[in-house]
């Protein structure tokens, strides 16, 4: 136990590289994050643009559509619809008009202007003709965003709480840990639901969600931190620092905090999926995001409702959701194995 506190990092990294599952997890996680945040730069379809007449289409579909303008000079179309719908609603003689439209790409009927366009939907469209991949990318930003913010909240509260409690020990520690025990007894999920229902009209509900979730999840973080700090403060480098008159604040920030990084990272990687699952449960109960913020949970819920008519609407977001959770869990497990000094000594 005398090794210098910094050296395990190289060991850990080596062990990490040996763990293929964890590496795959990390890789997938990076991929999903990049896809959600950078994907829209390349894949330009809007997640909100509906083509009502298109309805659900299978993945890898090229949809041939018609832009309808009631004024020729209008830049954005008044309506985007399918050729079938055009033939049924607007065309005077469907056969002739469709042929003309196909040949010229544009057509005017009774002062209404039509123009053909085509869109490629990689993962198909949902029942309102919206692109599923675009919705998944935006949903991912929301889900991951909420998960990170909630985890961050839990981290900030939990680490600071555990740090103080563990380092100062004694009566303060006893009192603070008693308080944590009490909070453990609260039916938190129920309080979160209550909070979601009762403060529903609140405009920044998304803030509320991650604050609520963060408030639930910091307890375990505090306990883990405390245990680690109690162990660290007996280490020679800390006692030495204390003997040479380094201030408590410096000891906490410069000597102890860096060594907390391992367990904190591990726990965070496990917390992110837990938060995402909780958010999806709230979405299922209709207590999650606002309507214009479709998270993965919301998409899964929508997909679940059309499970029997258009299963890919459930499968696509579920796949992203579960695979991300999978990846995070494997990554977390791998990191735990890699950073856990205890298991190595046994």
């Amino acid at each position: 136990m005398n090794e210098a506190p910094q050296s395990p990092w190289t060991d850990a990294w080596r062990r990490m590289l040996d763990n293929r599952l964890a590496l795959c997890g990390l890789g997938f996680f990076v991929f999903v994050t990049a896809l959600c945040y950078l994907g829209p730069i390349l894949y330009k379809l809007s997640p909100d643009a509906q083509v009502l007449a298109l309805e659900s289409t299978l993945p890898f579909t090229r949809a041939n559509l018609v832009e309808v303008r009631f004024d020729e000079e209008k830049t954005s179309p008044d309506e985007v619809t399918t050729l079938e719908d055009f033939a049924e609603v607007y065309a005077l003689d469907p056969e002739v008009d469709l042929e003309t439209l196909a040949k010229n790409g544009a057509l005017e009927i009774k002062g209404v202007f039509f123009q053909t366009i085509s869109r490629f939907h990689l993962l198909g469209t949902d029942s309102k003709g919206r692109d599923i991949l675009a919705r998944i990318m935006r949903g991912g930003r929301i889900s991951l965003g909420v998960a990170f913010l909630a985890t961050l909240t839990a981290l900030i509260i939990g680490v600071n709480y555990g740090l103080v409690s563990g380092y100062f020990g004694g009566r303060l520690d006893a009192f603070m840990m008693r308080f944590v025990d009490i909070l453990y007894a609260l039916p938190f999920l129920i309080l979160v639901i209550l909070l979601m229902v009762l403060f529903d009209g609140f405009h920044l509900k998304i803030l509320l969600i991650f604050i609520a979730i963060g408030a639930v999840e910091w307890l375990t973080m505090a306990r883990i931190t405390r245990g680690q700090v109690m162990h660290l403060k007996e280490q020679e480098f800390v006692t030495a620092a204390r003997a040479t008159g380094v201030s408590t604040f410096s000891i906490l920030t410069k000597h102890i905090a860096p060594n907390l990084l391992g367990p904190v990272i591990v726990y965070s990687t496990l917390l992110v999926p837990a938060v995402m699952l909780l958010e999806s449960t709230l979405s299922f109960l209709g207590l999650g995001m606002q309507a214009n913020m479709a998270s993965w949970g919301t998409l899964i819920k929508e997909g679940q409702q059309s499970m029997r008519s258009a299963p890919w609407q459930l499968i696509a977001p579920s796949l992203f959701f579960s695979a991300t959770l999978f990846a995070m869990n494997f990554l977390g497990d791998g990191l735990r194995d890699a950073l856990d000094v205890k298991s190595e000594n046994q």
């Binding site: 298109l54 309805e55 659900s56 289409t57 299978l58 890898f60 579909t61 090229r62 949809a63 041939n64 399918t82 050729l83 079938e84 033939a87 049924e88 469907p94 056969e95 469709l98 042929e99 196909a102 029997r308 008519s309 258009a310 299963p311």
Partner: peptide
């Protein structure tokens, strides 16, 4: 009958657009 005609026109005039509304029989 009118729909069939429209459909026929569509198939001739354009690349096939895959549209899927019912997925029941798959299961």
């Amino acid at each position: 009958s009118r729909l069939r005609r429209i459909r026929a026109t569509l198939i001739q005039a354009l690349p096939k657009s895959r549209k899927f509304t019912l997925h029941h029989s798959l299961f």
